[in-house]
Design a protein around this nucleic acid. Structure first.
Lengths: 337, 337
DNA sequence: TTGAAAGCGTTACCAG
DNA sequence: CTGGTAACGCTTTCAA
């Protein structure tokens, strides 16, 4: 049986108020009483109940994190960064993998609310943006991470996806590519849309058009879908010489497709990924990819969330971090077959 | 402001007891009252407080998961499996990355206890096994996953690491290797120890000795340490023709070391990994590795934990799942240089 | 300094 | 069926 504050009080021969004070280091207590109480707490292996404390109006010291899939290395990294920053500030982290499904998002949102988390960090997209409404109304602190939700007044930490797309285009253009294609996640994912937009814009500036039929969206099985879509692209008459993939998982799919079709990377096909996850470093060839500062993003999101929690300052700062192109060996000048 | 059960009761003109009943679907209430109450709950966007409910003795519907590092793909996969099974049963998951540090383990253990989680799944090792004692005494349900804690009476779900080690040895032996080496995690990790033991035993059966100086343990930076240790191994006079790595991350380090030294894999060096994470499929060459059924393990761990929670049945079943060797292209017969 | 007592939002038991 | 009312474990006035 877990010991309660009453047990401690009784054993120490004081009131529960006294015990509460030493727990929270508040109020005035004589040194000897405090020492005695601490001794009893120790002996009873007393652990104050966060639950009960939360009920009294205090916080639960728990944060929620919504991501599409925790087993996706990019989000696992984000999660680790969020966990670390939260932990250092005394918060625990509940993870929620949504698979980008509105129904799951909704379920988790409601669950987290019922559990009175002190705030939620959202790194998943949703079709129905109205879902956040009730949270905002209940004034539950929210921060978006790596994903945007325009029109809602929420803190947001993202890397400049648009710039990232441009970076990729710039690189490919510089190498001399003109027949390009894009592999994206579901188009409801805001970051994918932005990346494509940036990519496209930069191409346009170079006078290159990227027709819609060269932008393929995939489903949830990123690697598998990426491979399938890439295969489709690569078998077209006008085979692209370079593919920009909206994340590393898709890029891996593309890499596999190329291998299966006997196409050499980067000689016959250049591939650019996004996220710079550990995956990008282990493929062969290692992936040229656009890197996001996951650690910084996680830390920032937590800080923003908590600052929102402290002051009533609900302002929606939009913090944009800059991506970087990491050049590895999956890209090269197109061959003149 | 969040609506409470009182608000609902007032609006609906009933007692809070009535509201509580419709929330929990218990007791008897006339259909019309129930309908009216539900309507009000809807209108007020009422979310019952799990916190308050938990205080009255019910459960928190929250589970804790301790792993070394959520950004390690193997544990991310485990986490996803645990999350899914938990979620389908109504439980949320708090993740805790321990970095295999006792101090972090202890902190998290205590934190989870204070938050009254209904149970904890532990997939991290610890030097001081006494740390679990207080939990057991407070009869908090615990299940170990992918890791053992001999001497303690806890539910455990593991894959047969010993057999996994044998599998790796068997494979390498069959290929004709005789000069072997091992890259392990910290030796306090029980699974690593078992894998090595199995590996060694199988070698012994073939009359091959594996001296201790051929078994190198790494620190926490798995890939980096693996690379460093592998480099060390490969520069020895008696260069091994095959390395068995206790997980895929280490194997990747070994792969990188080999590349850097200009050694071809698998021609000049065979590498076997462990875990069969997504990483094993994307390296070049793709890794031959020992696979663990992560999904099944996660599901099982949750089920075991919850069954423990329901019945007072604290029995310590030890569930052992069988690993499988997945042969890819990082292993081959040794060359006769 | 110290302690008594009033909540916090729910559940559950017990009279109506 | 329905409503009153003790808990649950802790925090926080408010007196003493």
């Amino acid at each position: 049986m877990k010991a309660t504050i009453y047990d401690v009080a009784r054993e120490a021969g004081v009131s529960i108020a006294a015990v509460s004070q030493v727990i929270n280091g508040k109020g005035k207590i004589s040194e000897e009483r405090r020492a005695e109480i601490m001794r009893v707490m120790e002996r009873l292996n007393y652990q104050p109940s966060v639950i009960a404390a939360a009920l009294t109006g205090k916080k639960t010291y728990t944060l929620g994190l919504l991501v599409p899939d925790i087993s996706n290395p990019f989000f696992a990294e984000i999660a680790r960064a969020v966990e670390d920053q939260g932990h250092s500030l005394g918060y625990s982290l509940v993870i929620c993998s949504t698979d980008n499904k509105d129904e799951r998002v909704e379920r988790y949102l409601s669950l987290l609310q019922q559990k009175s988390v002190d705030g939620m960090i959202i790194g998943t997209g949703m079709d129905n943006k109205e879902m956040l409404k009730p949270l905002l109304e209940n004034s539950i602190p929210i921060a978006m991470i790596a994903r945007e939700m325009p029109g809602h007044d929420v803190q947001t930490v993202i890397t400049d996806d648009f710039a990232g797309g441009r970076l990729a285009a710039e690189h490919l253009l510089g190498l001399g590519h003109t027949r390009l294609a894009v592999l994206a996640e579901q188009l409801k994912v805001s970051s994918s849309r932005e990346r494509i937009r940036g990519f496209r814009q930069r191409l346009a500036e170079a006078g290159i058009d990227l027709p819609d039929d060269r932008v393929l969206a995939s489903g949830d099985a990123l690697v598998k879908d990426g491979k399938r879509k890439a295969t489709e692209l690569l078998q077209r008459a006008e085979r692209p010489t370079a593919i920009f993939c909206c994340n590393d998982l898709l890029a891996i799919g593309a890499l596999q497709a190329a291998k299966e079709l006997g196409l050499r990377v980067p000689e016959q096909l250049s591939i650019v990924g996004f996220d710079n996850t550990i995956l990008a470093t282990v493929t062969e060839p290692p992936l040229t990819t656009v890197s996001q500062p996951t650690e910084e993003m996680g830390k920032l999101a937590v800080d923003l969330l908590l600052s929102q929690l402290k002051k009533e300052e609900g302002g929606s700062r939009r913090t944009v971090l800059q991506p970087e192109l990491v050049t590895r060996r999956s890209t090269a000048a197109p061959s003149n077959e």
